[in-house]
Simulated scan of single mutants.
Amino acid sequence: MSNWPDWFLEALRHRFYQLELANEQQASCSSEDKNLFTQMNQFKTNQNEDAQHLLSEWEEAIGYQLSQDKQSIYMEGVKDGIRLILPVIHSTNIR
């Protein structure tokens, strides 16, 4: 990677630093998520069949929304990567 411009290496360091911070924040929420999931299951178990069905539909809708959000985040990451690498590829072709 020593042939890469300094601005590119700095941009990569900065981006990985941001991703690391986001990952740490998400990991801290993980135990809270597990607790919430356990409470939701206990709540759902104590409901009648109709309420359980509605809660299951709600969980499915939330799951779908989360998967859409994750897909969007993934695509933003791909776009970030392309934006970072294209200037380097173009500058290499010019030399």
Rank of each mutant, 00 (worst) to 15 (best):
M1G: 10
M1E: 10
S2M: 13
W4R: 05
W4G: 02
P5A: 00
P5S: 00
F8S: 00
F8D: 00
L9H: 06
E10A: 02
H14L: 11
R15Q: 07
R15P: 01
F16A: 04
F16C: 04
F16Q: 02
Y17H: 08
L19Q: 06
L19V: 10
L21R: 04
L21C: 03
A22P: 00
E24W: 11
Q25M: 10
Q26P: 00
A27T: 12
S28L: 13
S28D: 06
E32S: 11
E32W: 09
E32D: 08
K34A: 13
N35K: 14
L36R: 09
F37H: 09
F37Q: 10
T38R: 11
Q39K: 13
Q39S: 09
M40W: 13
N41T: 05
N41R: 12
F43K: 05
F43P: 00
F43V: 06
F43R: 06
K44E: 09
T45L: 03
T45F: 02
N48R: 02
D50G: 12
L54N: 09
L54A: 09
L54W: 11
S56G: 05
E57V: 11
E57F: 03
E57Q: 10
E57N: 10
W58Y: 15
W58P: 01
W58L: 14
E59I: 12
E60W: 08
A61I: 11
I62S: 07
Y64C: 04
Y64K: 12
Y64L: 10
Q65L: 10
L66F: 05
S72M: 09
S72K: 14
I73F: 06
M75F: 09
M75C: 05
E76W: 08
G77Q: 03
K79Y: 09
G81N: 08
G81K: 03
I82W: 04
L84M: 03
L86V: 15
V88A: 00
I89M: 01
H90F: 15
H90L: 14
H90R: 03
H90I: 15
H90C: 05
S91T: 14
N93Q: 07
N93G: 10
R95Y: 15
